[in-house]
Nucleic acid binder design. Structure first.
Lengths: 376, 376
DNA sequence: ACTCTAGATGAATCTCGCT
DNA sequence: CAGCGAGATTCATCTAGAG
């Protein structure tokens, strides 16, 4: 190491010692440059909600003709995967540097970007602890019927390295989950209602995250007084939740509109009210079982014959859980029951029966058997 | 049949005879070499359950210590991930080659490998259609309480390219899910009970996948008779389900123990008969009925009045099956519906209604009636 | 004040076949 | 290959306004 490097190094160390962390503040500017200004090994968590690189095509309309408001912001535009990867690795490298050795990072994304983010996370030496699935209670449907409803997003939780220590408040999570271990799949509604920031009736940010999500993350993986950095601060969900939970925060954001909204929001951050707390509870897995699930799991087999209690109607179970009558009519258990009876509606679970061991039993008993076998 | 056709046909048969697909067979050996022996663009789906690279932590990484040169350490990590990546890209490239242009690939993995797999999938030109989460109803708990219970695995579904066509049986999936769109999060129990293959009380394969998972995948994304290749066949879940559902399969596997177990298992899998195999069809694949045909056949008469459900618009049916509004606008049922609403598009079948016996019903019901009356 | 209904909307890689 | 036209396609939740 030459003299110049030595001097430069000493100067930088001195500068770091002098520069205090901009705690509970928003730093305006590019996230990579802003993180470079923070000292090494100085923060306890990085929570990042980077651009997803959606690559959307043309306009999309709902079946009722209304227009879908897509994410068309410039900050989500990248020309190539290589460009997105370079950006990802640059900000992740800075995140790694500013984290204390026992700090952790959280990143959220969708299938558009999360695989590239995860690969970069591993390549930079982070050690993945869990991937977490946010199951959306109310996702936007797939309006054209071309794919499965995109009903979840993925989060990655990683420590600084394989042997690194990290904070995990196991008891808090177990308590939050009715004395069952917290699983890697979490269900929350998307951000809406009063929580969704609006200005003039228009949403301020296209992708505001629910506070319940950040609440669980900060509660699980930080201690009171810990410092959380959010390099893509947006409208400041991380800051608002951190303040409520007694954590310190640093936000980095380029857009003035978002910064203004975030400042106002965090200043007003009130203790979580009861309705918000209610959404924190992990809902018991839904007792609802679709008829098709029984076919998939072998409780019924395609080809089985169902009848009503008086054996007036006779139908065949098909591979996809639809029923087919001898007269050619087909449909779900409810629809076909209604059609054959000429009724407006029908509860297929109690209407249709299957003969087992000479006894005619409603198919609802099969559902009960399935639930008993799979519910904890 | 003319001479030319006969010759062409014989030549094609000869070509196929030289390199026939090993349908409904297990090919023993390395998956990359075995796929290389298959012709290009010859199969409809690849389902892959590759090694999860779980050994990365113990065997491929050096322990983290201050005495180890940081640069060398990073190099080492990159090198070992590179090995897994090279293997992944090699078999994915072969999968891409053997797939027909309208074929799709499914890959399952966990956080240990799925990010690397997903990145490779994208880099090879595949176009991700969905990522699917398999929520385990009964996952293994995290015994040491150090992380969230790892309660899911991730699947990637991708077409050969952005503009590629693919099979998605939307109606079947909606029926299977009680008339709601099938979401990207699926819940199944892990493979156990009678389904779990055992020999001498010990499980034959450590990661046998549940048949219900493959059942949904094959039902959703293949047609009867389609060919599915599984390059990591294991104990043959893919083959067993494919046989039951009337799909053809090709398994590739190195371990003799697994091959033996798979052969026995698949032989015992009973194919469903044709009527049970039938599924709900999308309207697109049903015979098309032009609106004019209903007029021609007296299901509607020129001069009949149609309105929308709320009776905001009122139009007259004309002899050629076009509609005429009081304001002078005319057009097909779709076009006029769109014009009057000022919408970009409109489904006239569900938009326009006719009053019969005091009840307002969509004209689509007339089409259903016509189809029932005329279909064999 | 409360109920009911109609309308709006959310990180979305969202048609197909013929000319 | 671009353009055009037929016709297929949505779930949970919140808000506003009517009753």
């Amino acid at each position: 190491m030459g003299v110049i490097e030595k001097v430069a190094r000493r100067t930088r160390q001195a500068a770091e010692a002098e520069a205090p962390l901009p705690l509970d503040q928003i730093v305006m500017g590019d996230c990579i440059a802003a993180m470079k200004a923070l000292p090494s090994k100085s923060v306890d968590m990085v929570f990042a909600d980077p651009p997803y690189n959606l690559q959307l095509g043309g306009e999309l309309f709902r079946p009722d003709g209304s227009h879908v408001d897509a994410v068309t912001d410039d900050w989500d535009k990248f020309d190539t995967f290589a460009q997105y990867d370079a950006f990802t690795r640059a900000w992740l490298a800075e995140a790694h540097r500013i984290l204390k050795d026992d700090g952790t990072i959280w990143v959220i994304g969708s299938y558009h970007n999360i695989f590239r983010v995860g690969t970069a996370v591993q390549d930079l030496g982070f050690w993945i602890l869990n991937d977490i699935v946010w199951r959306k209670a109310n996702p936007m449907p797939n309006f054209r019927g071309t794919r499965f409803t995109n009903a979840h997003e993925t989060l990655i939780w990683a420590s600084k390295g394989e042997k690194a220590k990290y904070t995990f408040n196991y008891r808090s999570m177990k308590t939050l989950n009715d004395e069952l271990q917290m699983r890697s799949d979490w269900e929350f509604p998307i951000c809406g209602g009063n929580e969704r920031l609006k200005k003039g009736g228009v949403k301020v940010h296209p992708t505001q995250k629910p506070e319940a999500l950040l609440y669980r993350i900060l509660l699980a993986c930080t201690k009171p007084g810990d410092v959380v950095v959010d390099p893509f601060f947006g409208t400041g969900t991380t800051g608002a939740v951190a303040r409520r939970l007694g954590r310190r925060w640093i936000g980095i954001e380029r857009e003035l509109t978002y910064v203004d909204a975030a400042m106002e929001r965090i200043a007003a951050a009130l203790p979580l009210d009861e309705s918000a707390l209610a959404t924190m509870q992990s809902p018991r897995s839904q007792p609802k079982v679709a008829f098709g699930v029984l076919v998939e799991n072998g409780y019924l087999t395609a080809g089985d014959v169902l009848t009503d209690a008086k054996r007036r109607y006779r139908v065949l179970v098909r591979a996809d859980g639809s029923l087919a009558s001898e007269c050619g009519a087909t449909g779900s258990i409810h629809k076909l029951g209604a059609t054959l009876q000429g009724a407006p509606a029908c509860n297929g679970w109690t209407f249709w029966h299957i003969e087992r061991d000479g006894v005619l039993a409603p198919i609802d008993t099969l559902r009960q058997t399935y639930l008993l076998a799979t519910q904890p």
